[in-house]
């Protein structure tokens, strides 16, 4: 059904700084895969490399049998990789429905001329895709606000709109960059259940960057932990929680020695 996303030996260099250092991991089809790590660990850089906004100095990114490494962002989007941005990147003055319709770009064809002439094909396409966009808006809980302008929505709803827009590209795999950041507790869990239902009902794999450890531990099937651009641990939430390297990265070397393995780091990292 969906394909595996494989990051292999990726190195990303900004001048003298190595943002990603020989990073490898695989997102298995149909899983929620979290990428965590302290600030500056390279989580967003990982996303930017996968979605083609940065080009790695070495290594490759493959989606099934397709090599994404040298592709431009729009080609990668067309391969079925959807992305929601951390710093909400919506058109503030446009309505919710227009913000979602733009994500149908890769699935629609009407160009300047066909649109200008109002050709029947262009009109039909518009109608069909509006219908689907409405369904997706309902799915994320924005169905009642289709005609509100995006800028006037509450913060939580704008975050949700980001996710909905990425879903509107009908992705095989969804990259979510801190979908729960800055949200009060109850909204966080709404987003968490939304992510789960994306996987359950739409069968889309999710790659998740998130700082909120309780949320990550609750919904992730597999976790990759980064620090200074390197992979320091990976595995199931349980495996990662008991990893000394992870505790050291978040709390420092001494903490790793002092802390009993039973103390999950999940209570502390939310602060950073």
């Amino acid at each position: 059904m969906t394909r595996a996303l494989t990051v292999e030996g990726v190195t990303l260099q900004f001048g003298g700084i190595r943002a990603l250092d020989d990073l490898s991991f695989t997102v298995e089809p149909g899983t929620v895969h979290a990428v965590i790590g302290p600030n500056g660990a390279g989580k967003s850089s990982t996303f930017n490399v996968i979605s083609g906004h940065y080009r790695p100095a070495a290594g490759s990114i493959r989606f099934g049998d397709t090599d994404l490494t040298e592709m431009a962002p729009h080609r990668i989007a067309r391969e079925g990789i959807g992305r929601a941005f951390q710093n909400i990147a919506l058109s503030g003055h446009a309505t919710v429905v227009d913000n979602l319709m733009v994500a149908r770009h890769r699935l629609t064809r009407a160009g300047f001329l066909a649109t200008a002439l109002g050709l029947p094909g262009a009109r039909r396409e518009e109608r069909i895709h509006r219908e689907r966009v409405r369904e997706i808006a309902d799915f994320v809980g924005l169905g009642g606000q289709l005609n509100a302008s995006a800028g006037t929505l509450a913060y939580g709803d704008r975050k949700r709109l980001e996710i909905a827009r990425a879903l509107c590209t009908e992705p095989e795999i969804l990259l979510l960059d801190e979908p729960a950041a800055g949200m009060p507790a109850f909204e966080k869990w709404d987003v968490a259940s939304l992510v789960l239902s994306v996987r359950e009902s739409l069968g889309i794999s999710v790659v998740l960057v998130e700082h909120d450890m309780p949320v990550v531990m609750a919904i992730a099937d597999h976790i990759t932990v980064l620090d200074f651009g390197r992979l320091i641990a990976e595995g199931t939430p349980e495996e990662v929680q008991s990893s000394e390297a992870v505790i050291a990265a978040y709390l420092g070397e001494t903490a790793a020695h002092d802390q009993a393995v039973t103390t999950a780091p999940s209570t502390t990292p939310t602060a950073c």
């Binding site: 906004h53 431009a72 989007a77 919506l90």
Partner: peptide, 15 residues
């Protein structure tokens, strides 16, 4: 419009 507001987002939408 999306290109104007965020070129990166436009790219990731397939534009």
């Amino acid at each position: 419009r999306l290109m104007r507001d965020s070129a990166a987002a436009a790219g990731s939408m397939g534009v």
